[in-house]
Simulated assay, not measured.
Amino acid sequence: MDHKSSVRERVFGQLRKVAYADSRFHFDFGEFIADFQGSEQALERLVNHRFYQQAQVVFITPDNCLEMLRYRALQDGKRILMTTYSIKRGFWLLDPDTIAPERWLYAATLDGMERHGRPMTLAQIRDELPGVDYMVTGTGAINEDGVRFGKGHGFFDAEWGMLYRIGKITTETPAAAVVHDCQVLAETLYPEVFDTVVDAIFTPTRTIEVADPHKPTCGIVWDLLDPTMLATIPPLRELQRMEPQLPPL
């Protein structure tokens, strides 16, 4: 953890030079994933990549750098599954077929998604949605092998674990990270058993594809889960209640 903290400190110092401040969190990168100079070019690389082109249902995290991706996905007729407020407000579905086109841009924002999206329980996701085709996230730092260092809370790994456990994603489901070039590290990092290593990294200047990325198959490791996350995140408590009825891993 000390090594991770030192990596974040080093990267966040560089990121401050190119990031856009958040009106709520200023430059506190421990509280949000920032948008940054050149994110438009990074997103253009993503939407022209085969993973996005082949996807119909896309999970997109509520990160600042992905707001315009959510708008683009609605324009492209894709359904978006996302979470908000550190997963504490649960999963939401944005469906372009049920949102007026003139509201798509607002629906792509964190405030607008709750006005125009549909809240979904894990049971509803399991029973009503087809598989999620693509998982997209921002992150604090990442190396060229796709190992992420986020804000340190593990939200994306929890989202992967929940969706994997209810059968909506598999080890073949691609995952991607959108970051500034200064957030990409050359050093070797080692994922934990529950860490989701991405298949592709999109920066303003590069598309990095990762060979044989590690995808966790453990669901939620309850013994290692921060008790605060279980206490404050309703979907985790729902999954815990569902566990006895789910097939064994």
Rank of each mutant, 00 (worst) to 15 (best):
G117Q: 02
L122N: 04
A107Y: 05
G117S: 07
D22E: 08
D133A: 10
I233Q: 08
R10W: 06
S5P: 00
I220N: 14
M242W: 08
C65F: 04
D22V: 01
R70N: 10
L230T: 05
R8K: 15
T188I: 15
P96D: 12
E192H: 06
T196N: 07
P234D: 10
P235D: 09
A21R: 08
R237I: 01
Q56W: 02
R115M: 11
G117A: 11
I87A: 04
R72L: 07
R70P: 12
T84S: 15
V210Y: 02
V58R: 13
A21L: 06
D133W: 12
T205M: 05
P244L: 10
V7C: 03
D181N: 13
H3F: 08
V147D: 00
T173V: 10
A211K: 09
F12G: 04
P96Q: 14
M68L: 12
V184G: 07
D35G: 15
E67I: 01
P119M: 09
I220K: 09
E114F: 02
L239M: 06
A73V: 04
L74M: 07
R103M: 11
G131S: 13
F32Q: 04
Q37K: 15
E40V: 15
D199Q: 01
D76P: 05
Q14K: 14
S23Q: 14
C65T: 02
D111Q: 13
P204N: 07
Y190H: 15
S5M: 10
Q75E: 12
D133N: 14
D35P: 12
Y190Q: 14
L66D: 14
Q183N: 11
A108F: 02
V136G: 04
A19H: 04
